[in-house]
Design a binder for these strands. Structure first.
Lengths: 225, 225
DNA sequence: TCTTGTTTGTCACATAGCTGACAAATGACT
DNA sequence: AGTCATTTGTCAGCTATGTGACAAACAAGA
């Protein structure tokens, strides 16, 4: 009878190709946590000395600027990694990570222990860098599109990528579960809330995209471009 | 008598802690290249199946948008890594990497060989993920500041970070070697060229920052904030 | 059902930064 | 020195987006 931990770990692509022995080792190092809605996973000056895996739910990363506004950097989903990814000092001064729903489950490792583990499991180390590299691509592509596109394009792109991830393969009548407020959508795309509202209204008029409180309806994905 | 390759590799933090035997192995896999100014290292649909290290000079990464504008994503310097960092398929469709000066020296590995190598050298794998993680931090911090700050702040920040990197420790009368045109500075900061010119003019008026063609003068770094 | 807080929709207004256009300054080549 | 291409400086609109303000719609709890 395998433990719950076992299955949580086993599910992550990073931990593919480990032997059962490896897993037993892993279980000694890993800590699990179920977070409540809006719970801070880390905050501000807390030094982040851990690597976190999102097992279930969503986590938002961001920071507070000098005027106290919440700036959202990213919303993570199942299997994403965050924390001290470089495994070294990082000066993420005013950053925070926050669980978005009640169902959020994380697991985490101490950086030093995680690093030690990687050093004895080359495949694991390679998988880890693959994952980090992949997330980097996503982030940098997302940001660059933000900088150079107008508001409408950004939003359309945003929902298109979301749809492509959540509803792989489906192209008609897509329904996404929505866990973001307009405020959050706006922040993620570097827009004012009001602008977002206006444009989402227009997109709804045009039957391209209907963003509701708890779901997002997309009649046909090819209209998003 | 060690080869040139040996020294180039040895210098990179990633290759710390390798034995001389390891180095001999490495040398079989690595390829070096000296690029001429404006030479494309890869371009567009070319599939990037390599991991590159910048050994000397600068490399710019970017892509061409639908209107044919050159969008700059990043300017890399010595010791930075680029290419297929995730070691897996990446759909960097219209992206390019270009050498900026004549002195640009790169080394590169085939992704598959590099991965195989990592799998037998755990420390190397860990160092590699550290480097990738570190670059990710830099990129995402840079972008996030772009999105939420005004033009002046972005530019000041840009030169401040540059100064802190090139002229570590120095705080007065800093002189940076400038290899960027206004056009490139603008693109890197998500601005129009004209806006950049206007603001750089103002900053010069105010004796805060003097950006010339081949050098950047900074009277006092604490003025940049 | 009523109450309260949060989220959304929609104004009117201000403005930072983009565009296009051109001339001046610089650098590279002959 | 003279020519040409590239880079920089500067102008006069224009427009997309941000701001502030408020009411309407919704959600959650008592």
């Amino acid at each position: 009878m395998k433990s719950v931990k076992y299955w949580y770990l086993r599910n992550h692509t990073i931990f593919d190709a480990l032997t059962d022995d490896d897993y037993e080792q892993l279980e000694w190092l890993v800590a699990f946590k179920t977070c409540t809605k809006h719970e801070f996973i880390y905050f501000s000056e807390d030094e982040v000395r851990k690597v976190y895996f999102v097992k279930r739910g969503n986590v938002k990363l961001g920071y507070y600027d000098d005027d106290g506004n919440e700036i959202l950097l990213d919303v993570l989903k199942e299997n994403d990694i965050f924390g001290q990814l470089s495994l070294e000092e990082n000066n993420n001064k005013h950053g925070f990570a926050m669980a978005m729903g009640n169902d959020t489950v994380l697991c985490n490792f101490n950086v030093s222990e995680f690093e030690a583990m990687l050093k004895t499991r080359p495949t694991l180390a390679v998988n880890y860098s693959k994952q980090v590299g992949k997330q980097q691509m996503t982030v940098s592509r997302r940001y660059s599109s933000l900088l150079f596109k107008d508001a409408r394009t950004r939003l359309v792109q945003f929902f298109k990528e979301w749809a492509e991830e959540e509803a792989k393969g489906v192209t008609k009548n897509i329904v996404l579960k929505n866990y973001l407020t307009q405020q959050e959508i706006a922040a993620l795309n570097g827009l004012a809330r009001q602008t977002t509202a206006r444009i989402l209204g227009e997109l709804k008029e045009q039957n391209i995209l209907d963003v509701r409180r708890r779901e997002v309806l997309i009649p046909a994905i090819e209209l998003l471009k």
